[in-house]
Design a protein around this nucleic acid. Sequence first.
DNA 1: CGTTGGGTTGAGCTTGTTCAACCACCGTGG
DNA 2: CCACGGTGGTTGAACAAGCTCAACCCAACG
Lengths: 251, 251
Amino acid sequence: MAPAVISTQALPRRSRSSHTQSAKAIPCLHCPAKAFNVCKPLGYERQKELFETGVQQTWRRRQFLFRMGDPAGPIFKVTSGIVAVSRPLPEGRRQISLFILPGEVCGYLEINGNYAFDGEAITEARTCSFSRRKFHAFVASNRDVDDAVKTALGERLQQVGRQQAVLGQLTSTGRVASFLLTLVNDYNAHGIQTRPLWLPMSRADIADYLGLRIETISRAFAKLKNRKVLEIDNEAVVIHDLKHLAELAEF
Amino acid sequence: MAPAVISTQALPRRSRSSHTQSAKAIPCLHCPAKAFNVCKPLGYERQKELFETGVQQTWRRRQFLFRMGDPAGPIFKVTSGIVAVSRPLPEGRRQISLFILPGEVCGYLEINGNYAFDGEAITEARTCSFSRRKFHAFVASNRDVDDAVKTALGERLQQVGRQQAVLGQLTSTGRVASFLLTLVNDYNAHGIQTRPLWLPMSRADIADYLGLRIETISRAFAKLKNRKVLEIDNEAVVIHDLKHLAELAEF
DNA sequence: CGTTGGGTTGAGCTTGTTCAACCACCGTGG
DNA sequence: CCACGGTGGTTGAACAAGCTCAACCCAACG
């Protein structure tokens, strides 16, 4: 029920055994998420300090990192995989707010000491899971990190604000087109290849994100395939006509 | 085009003339917005300091405080009236993200030095308009204010996250019901009476907020009136059956 | 007194949902 | 090795919800 630590990386142990501040002590230096969010402004010393306020965890597909309403535990920085931040609804339904890509943080928001959203691994995922107390303390004593936190909050707000327009104004095909384009943008910003475009989320995930039924998602993809806008092979999408896709996603 | 200062309050002038730190120097002490957002943690001295980083402005109905894409100017704390934060769409349409009540801040978010949203006065409104540079400096040197900013960002994020679910999952009547309940909650939180409920926004505003057409809004209200859930008189709504309304707004 | 803007109401159409059948894939157990 | 059930995805037909277009109402205002 509570998120279990599936595997704690070996590297932190090595760092402890070598109790010197050797550059090899923390895995962050080679972490693909290093360049994003709160880790971005950090040099070695402070990166190490932050690293040691948490543990590394891995998560299976469909495993929950945190659940809305549960006492607010760790803050998660995703280092690999994709996490869906969502609001649970009656009868097993949910509204996915946004997808968290490697480098970004989730589980930050709390309401009266409880997580404000669900966080669910869409793929196998790894996280640095920081003690909330220590994380806040670290942020409080590092101006640039604090700025990074505010920047990240602002970016989420913009993302979600845009998504509101998608939900409020676009037709089903438009929403799917917009979803794909957003993914392409976000993947680009996070150094993930987009040809082919990795699409690990199920039809149900996409439906819960776009406020549609899975059948409608399926039909939208069928339409896009028929019009030769894209091609789908399992979890890989190849976009042939980006321009056309962009037109469909226009308001 | 640029938001014009309609009237600069007389009070700041008085405070300047009396160059002592008399408690009458700033109007904040009697400001209804004092207890909210960034002003909340401030005592007299710091409140005065913040106050002096900006000017007071008043806005007419339908006037824009700021426009998405324009160079990011002041940050606005609304002291009276209601402001709609929205994203403009082609052909004069828009998606309203949220309504800003007295006490809250808008115009904070920027993207590459430009405002990230539109801000439009729904009613006559007054604001404290702070120089962005000075505001950031003030926040940077006041830990508790900085926390207030992050808290406010988090609250917006939750608000908008919830609204995503409304747009994605609810039927038209449900959306209208949810809108009214949200308004009641927010009014309560901001010390505004809710019997009757002041409804200054036009059908078009509500439609742009809920992702519906004005005709649909009209029909939803008609349905609620027929079912004796509420009563409407011009800009005043009296809710008779809050429970029923809550059921309609359920997911 | 005509015009204008905001709101309501009706009729027909479009879009997405619902419900159902069906398919491909995959792991399990007989 | 094949039969089986489970999961995720696709497709079809009927239905319902919201949109479009149009007419109409009312109050405010010049």
